[in-house]
Design a protein around this nucleic acid. Sequence first.
DNA 1: ATCACATACCCAATTTTCTTATGTATATAA
DNA 2: TTATATACATAAGAAAATTGGGTATGTGAT
Lengths: 114, 114
Amino acid sequence: MSNNNLIKGSLQTIILKLLEENDRMYGYEITQRVKELTEGEIKITEGALYPALHKLEAEGMLTTEIQQVDNRVRKYYSLTKDGQKEVSAKMSELQSFVGNLQRILDPGWKPGLA
Amino acid sequence: MSNNNLIKGSLQTIILKLLEENDRMYGYEITQRVKELTEGEIKITEGALYPALHKLEAEGMLTTEIQQVDNRVRKYYSLTKDGQKEVSAKMSELQSFVGNLQRILDPGWKPGLA
DNA sequence: ATCACATACCCAATTTTCTTATGTATATAA
DNA sequence: TTATATACATAAGAAAATTGGGTATGTGAT
């Protein structure tokens, strides 16, 4: 995940959420989307991404579809039913975790006040 | 660190920040403070905490002072000069990471709008 | 008395997740 | 022909947890 060494475990959530929004994406596309959205600040490395995708597929969260585009092979991933449920679960876990982090780290923090 | 599996990488930041606010804390106290602040949702395990404290000490971020209290030994930790600088660095890293996470995961998210 | 629980420290084996480095292959622009 | 972009993949190693132990004291309940 680039130079940023924080919060291991959020990569799966990122993958699942992007697939919820986009229905169908391939690996390289995911890395580019994340780079775009964070203005280059988070770069998902291939060494992290592909193992994560394979693991999610093995767990039944994703299905794949291989497709030829301009003499290049793309492997498209989509959410399964289980994957769709998992997105919600992971998202609320992450939200609650970030909330708890704020309670620990931001003295005087109150929910709902930016 | 308990049942919550999304915390990896933020423990050092939590320790440093709590010590910035409290000047002097011992290990067990840190676990209890975090439990309090998160209403039991985050429980720092001793297997994670003590190695993290020892590492921060070895890196020169913390100093220790052993004290007897009621026939029990307590090891108090405080920030060194380097540790004080490190708090700011870790905090802004974490804030920027959480911001990037929101850009990825919250479609339509704008900074400053809760 | 003994058992559970709280306080207070510690370590070792294992697992998960990442970094770093490498490999394959095609296409395009300098 | 060299670098960069696209597109997949694996393997060695490090980092940071989990899990499960161990030591020891104090207190409240059965």
